[in-house]
Amino acid sequence: MKAIVIATNFFLFSLVASGQNMVVQTQSEWTVAGIQHGFSVGYETRSSWGLGVYYQAELEKENEENITRDDFRGVYLQAPVVKADKLAFFALLRAGLANNNFVAIAPGLETRVHISRRLGTAFGMGLRMGCASVSGRLFVKMF
């Protein structure tokens, strides 16, 4: 246990010391099959490259046979395209499993607006299920 605490502290302090961040985001995405809500947790370098995991799902919906809920989970890679003081554009690649069984890759572009040093909002457009999707996020840089 002591080792875990020390390792965690070492990791968090190293993030702070080197200007890197843990980023937590809540997100909603409008896809051709419905709206999905979720969250992501990721690691972001000083140059704004990011890597993390995400989970998003539809609210339950009832069809004529049963109750279903589409979801999408996996890992994301974020690459900075253009950065300004409060504004940044990113290329985003998400890869994972849709509905637990189906491998899916979703490329996209994102505009991020910093509201404060740690808090911000982002708007994205991507490709899901062969169609355009639109997403909105709120993010917090934790450490």
Binding site: H114, I115, T121, F123, M125
Partner: peptide, 17 residues
């Protein structure tokens, strides 16, 4: 700060309306 919030609101309207 206000300018950023207005920009964020405009982006939101642009992308979701």
């Amino acid at each position: 700060m206000l300018r950023i919030l207005i920009y964020a609101l405009l982006m939101h309207l642009l992308l979701t309306s």
